[in-house]
Structures are given as structure tokens and as C-alpha cells.
């Protein structure tokens, strides 16, 4: 039961591995970005579930209920920053892919590498 009780970590690990596998196995540049996103999302889940406290409420302080147990808000705030970082990374990556498509006419990593190796710089 102890193992199942930590199911949030299993989800985290599963997503992480899925993302990582896509990242290394795919040669299509957009699919790689998808993999990267899944990989990063797994970390978001890791952070968010970390702040959860059994029986905890949302961290809103109401007059007269100072005794209430609430979830730790800090990981959530942190991960908001990380999500912003992830979004910007994705944006830059997609912009790069657009430019690569313009310059090479393809977004297949293998084909691009083959073109790169044709001419010495």
C-alpha cells in the first residue's frame, strides 16, 4: 500500500520517462518539443503534488479559522514561475523551428544533419 500511496510520484516518473523517451527517440523537431513539454509538465506535477497536505484546504486565511490546515502555497507559486519559463522556452523553440523550416525546407533532424554535413563551413 505504501507504494500505491505515493501514486503522485509514480505519475511524475511515468510522465517524465514518456517525455524523455520522446525527446531522445524522435527526430522530428516539433515532436521533440512536445516531448520536452511533457517532460517539463511532469516536474510541474511533482511540485504541485508536493505542496499537498492530507486534509489541507486552499491556503486562504479566513477570520476565526487560524487552526485550519492548508496546503503549502509556495511550491505552487514556484511552479508558476517554472511554467512561465517552460512556455518561453517552447516559444523560442517553435520560433527556431519556423526559421529552420524556412532555411532548410524540412523539420526532420536527420535530413537537416545530412544537409549540414554536406558542406564544410
Amino acid at each position: 500500500m505504501r507504494i500505491l500511496g505515493l501514486y503522485n510520484y509514480w505519475i511524475f516518473i511515468f510522465l517524465m520517462m514518456v517525455g524523455f523517451y520522446i525527446l531522445i527517440s524522435r527526430r522530428n523537431l516539433v515532436k521533440k518539443i512536445l516531448g520536452l513539454n511533457i517532460f517539463q509538465t511532469s516536474v510541474f506535477i511533482f511540485y504541485i503534488s508536493m505542496g499537498k497536505i492530507t486534509g489541507g484546504t486552499p491556503p486562504i486565511l479566513v477570520e476565526g479559522s487560524e487552526e485550519v490546515i492548508y496546503s503549502n502555497p509556495l511550491p505552487h507559486v514556484l511552479i508558476l514561475t517554472a511554467i512561465v519559463v517552460g512556455v518561453s522556452t517552447t516559444a523560442v523553440a517553435l520560433a527556431l523551428v519556423v526559421r529552420i523550416k524556412e532555411a532548410y525546407g524540412t523539420i526532420e533532424g536527420d535530413e537537416i544533419s545530412a544537409m549540414d554535413n554536406q558542406i564544410p563551413f
Partner: peptide, 14 residues
Amino acid sequence: ALHAAYKYLIMGSI
């Protein structure tokens, strides 16, 4: 340079 930057981006993000 584009391809190099892309590869760097993937590795750097990991």
C-alpha cells in the same frame, strides 16, 4: 546556427 541553437535549447532545457 539555427540547428545548433535548437540542439542547445533541447539539451539546455533538459
